[in-house]
């Protein structure tokens, strides 16, 4: 039983990270109806940005809260800028061309970031320095709740809460929803579509930047191809929840994290990475719109 609860805790904390990244896929999809394949590579760049920051100031030798937040801030900033730039330089000029062109461009940007990463950061995995000292926060009945899990979960929940406030209560957030529901009418009402799209990329990429630091602390090996697997899983999480739906992305991420953890705990850890593909196939067959997704409402 204790072991089971331990798995639940691990699963939720990993699931929260998947959710953060899945949110980026789903937000961009909601606005532009395309999958930003470069999203997970933005996350990779965020991980390296905070890695180099940590190395430069030798943060790993004196883990401290403030370092953690500085790394988090830097990664978020770098990812936000990168996401903003990618949209502006690579996707915007293609906005009026067929969806396939933009999709292929996204794959191109993804490959570019991965190979540029190998060139700049090296092919070998790097060890992400511990920004915080890992400790047992408390134990109940033999279950150790680690500080890291609580931090990961806490930061993720905070980030999602902020996102929710922004999307549902800020003017630009409401404009974002309006654009995703009917961009022509949104433009007629004075909403600048370009600004809303930039904002969406900044928001989604920031979440990826936060996830990058959290993952770096949990699985400290980082390398330029790390986005590929993470991207696949987070994407499947977004599809599972219903692509385009924000609560769906969170739900999908949690299910993904929990089921992976159960597979590792009770079946075989080698199946872990295959699971996401299994889930994808099952949803595509039985519920292509995802758990919380709705069919796009056709315009009359």
């Amino acid at each position: 039983m204790n072991e089971f609860i331990q798995h639940i805790i691990n699963g939720i904390s990993m699931g929260a990270i998947y959710a953060l990244i899945a949110l980026g896929y789903t937000m961009v999809y909601g606005i532009l109806q395309f999958i930003n394949f470069a999203h997970a590579d933005i996350y990779m760049v965020g991980a390296f940005a905070s890695y180099y920051l940590a190395r430069f100031f030798q943060l790993g030798e004196h883990p401290h809260w403030s370092w953690f937040f500085i790394a988090l801030g830097l990664s978020t900033l770098v990812c936000a800028l990168l996401g903003f730039a990618i949209e502006k330089i690579a996707y915007r000029p293609l906005r009026k061309s067929p969806k396939l062109n933009i999709l292929i461009t996204a794959i191109g940007v993804s490959l570019f970031l991965e190979y540029a990463g190998q060139l700049l950061f090296g092919v070998d995995p790097k060890l992400f320095p511990p920004l915080l000292t890992e400790s047992v926060l408390f134990s109940i009945g033999g279950i150790n709740v680690m500080s890291l899990d609580v931090i990961i979960l806490g930061i993720s929940i905070l980030a999602m809460f902020v996102l929710h406030r922004v999307v549902y209560h800020s003017k630009l957030g409401k404009a974002m929803r309006a654009v995703s529901q009917n961009s022509t009418v949104a433009a007629m009402l004075g909403i600048s579509i370009d600004r809303v799209i930039s904002f969406t990329f900044i928001l989604g990429s920031s979440l990826a930047g936060i996830a990058a630091v959290l993952v770096g602390m949990r699985y400290p090996k980082i390398e330029p191809m790390m986005g590929m697997l993470m991207g696949t899983k987070a994407f499947v999480a977004a599809v599972l929840g219903g692509i385009g739906s924000l609560p769906g992305a969170v739900l999908g991420g949690l299910i993904m994290g929990l089921s992976e953890e159960m597979v590792v705990g009770y079946l075989q850890s080698t199946y872990r990475d295959a699971l996401s593909f299994g889930i994808l196939i099952v949803i595509l067959i039985f519920k292509p719109t995802g758990l919380l997704g709705t069919k796009r409402i056709e315009k009359v």
């Binding site: 409401k174 309006a178 022509t184 009418v185 433009a187 007629m188 009402l189 579509i193 315009k299």
Partner: peptide, 21 residues
């Protein structure tokens, strides 16, 4: 989006309400 600021607003064919708002 700039034309609205000059005083031109439209109620479009098919209404175009934001259905999920």
């Amino acid at each position: 989006h700039q034309r609205v600021r000059l005083g031109l607003a439209q109620s479009p064919e098919g209404r175009g309400v934001f259905p999920l708002m």
